[in-house]
Write a protein that binds this DNA or RNA. Sequence first.
DNA 1: TTGAACTGCGACAAAATCAGTCCTATACTG
DNA 2: CAGTATAGGACTGATTTTGTCGCAGTTCAA
Lengths: 153, 153
Amino acid sequence: MLRLTKKADYGLMALKYLAEHPDSVSVSAKDIADTYGIPAQLLAKVLQRLTKVGLLRSHAGMNGGYELSREARTISAFEVIHAIDGPLFITSCTKGSKSCDLEPNCTIKEPLARVNDSIAGVLKSISIHDMADYELPSGRGAEPHPLVSLTRT
Amino acid sequence: MLRLTKKADYGLMALKYLAEHPDSVSVSAKDIADTYGIPAQLLAKVLQRLTKVGLLRSHAGMNGGYELSREARTISAFEVIHAIDGPLFITSCTKGSKSCDLEPNCTIKEPLARVNDSIAGVLKSISIHDMADYELPSGRGAEPHPLVSLTRT
DNA sequence: TTGAACTGCGACAAAATCAGTCCTATACTG
DNA sequence: CAGTATAGGACTGATTTTGTCGCAGTTCAA
């Protein structure tokens, strides 16, 4: 449980790909989809959403495609996930709205809101660059990720 | 996104309830279900699973019901969620198994495994007692939760 | 100026997961 | 034995996720 949707996965993979190919001016959804073997049309939609939110810039037409609108280092995993999967709520009942119709008190959501924030914090602390940099076999860039090095049992 | 299932919510609520009623020797699923207005049979199943896993002790028959098998302080939210919703994987493709059929490399899961661990850590750091203690209107027990006080923006 | 290669959307279909119900069996109490 | 519980399997309906189709608009280049 507690999974990201595949769309979010796809989105992260695509952004990572873009971060790893800064040379290419713009990459088409199909290129990325083919690279990873994921449904092109679905990925296209994901990228469209990311564009709409401003994380990507697109341009149509031949040799069109997408490019990061900001540096990979400044784009957090949280932003991507939020754009694709919507707001992050660990509990089934969200706090503000009327959604929690459980009788007197859905006594669980208050404490879990903290957990929620913690998770969001972790996600915010990871940038696309961090993810891309991660497994570059080459030398430099192997610096650890201080923000993520929590609680490894 | 990134939601717990309702079953997990129900389970947490029920454990919290049990933690708040240590006086009662054992509480029936129906009692709890009625208190929170959740489907009794569904909650029953959740409690059965928690019993199977050893977090609860049950006893059938009149005035039967459930009780915590350990102190609330020693039961983590993680255990409950894991028992009900299964293992915690943030990525759609889990690392060890053959599940990631995305062509060459599902390049995303490695970095996200860290995030996964962080989240698990947060969940492990919260006990049922923490959750129960949380909103007791009475005086004592208002001590903060150092383990959870991460990254509140 | 035509066509190929793109993005941008909306609607829809298929599949998977979740939530909830029903029914039966079993255990314990009095 | 009657009544109240847990235990658990089977099944249905709702919801969400995943993926497809079709069409319109854009850009480029021959």
